[in-house]
Simulated scan of single mutants.
Amino acid sequence: MPQLESMDEIQEEVHRDSELRVIVENLWQAREAAPGYHLQNDRLYYQGRVVIPAQSAWRTVMMHEFHSSSTGGHAGILRTLQRARANVFLEGNAP
């Protein structure tokens, strides 16, 4: 999972993304405005996973962590992607 300092940067990227900003604004107005999405501590989640914008530099960093960390264990492309998708929602990719 992203660390606190990266979460703040990710949330700034969410607010800069025009499509995600609309989702956040709709959620502020009505809880059920965007099915599957919710706000927690002013952070955007999709089905319980942190939303990472499509253009975020953190996508590459996280994929490296999921692949190369001691828990990642160089599991290969498919397993790394599955592990990442279980923990974060990579906006712009099919869920």
Results as ranks from 00 to 15, higher is better:
69 S>R: 11
22 V>L: 09
1 M>K: 10
52 I>P: 00
90 L>F: 12
57 A>W: 02
79 R>M: 06
12 E>H: 10
77 I>M: 12
73 G>S: 10
52 I>H: 05
50 V>I: 05
79 R>E: 14
33 A>N: 01
33 A>L: 01
62 M>P: 00
20 L>Q: 04
75 A>N: 13
51 V>A: 08
22 V>Y: 07
64 H>M: 11
52 I>D: 01
83 R>Q: 08
17 D>C: 07
66 F>R: 07
59 R>D: 03
61 V>N: 14
79 R>V: 13
82 Q>M: 12
60 T>L: 09
95 P>D: 10
53 P>F: 05
40 Q>I: 10
55 Q>W: 06
77 I>E: 14
3 Q>N: 10
42 D>W: 04
78 L>T: 12
42 D>I: 01
85 R>G: 04
64 H>D: 15
22 V>N: 09
82 Q>Y: 12
38 H>K: 01
12 E>N: 13
40 Q>A: 01
86 A>Y: 03
24 V>I: 04
8 D>W: 08
76 G>W: 00
13 E>F: 06
48 G>S: 08
17 D>S: 03
42 D>Q: 08
10 I>M: 05
47 Q>T: 07
71 T>W: 15
23 I>R: 03
1 M>S: 13
41 N>V: 12
2 P>N: 09
12 E>Y: 11
82 Q>N: 15
4 L>T: 06
19 E>A: 06
68 S>E: 13
22 V>D: 14
42 D>G: 02
25 E>V: 02
14 V>T: 03
80 T>W: 02
54 A>P: 13
53 P>C: 02
12 E>M: 14
22 V>S: 10
69 S>A: 08
23 I>K: 10
53 P>A: 04
21 R>N: 05
49 R>F: 02
90 L>H: 04
34 A>P: 06
20 L>S: 01
63 M>W: 06
1 M>P: 12
57 A>K: 13
58 W>E: 00
37 Y>D: 00
87 N>P: 11
71 T>Q: 14
57 A>M: 09
93 N>K: 11
94 A>Y: 10
46 Y>A: 00
7 M>E: 11
64 H>W: 14
6 S>R: 11
19 E>W: 03
52 I>V: 04
42 D>R: 09
24 V>Q: 09
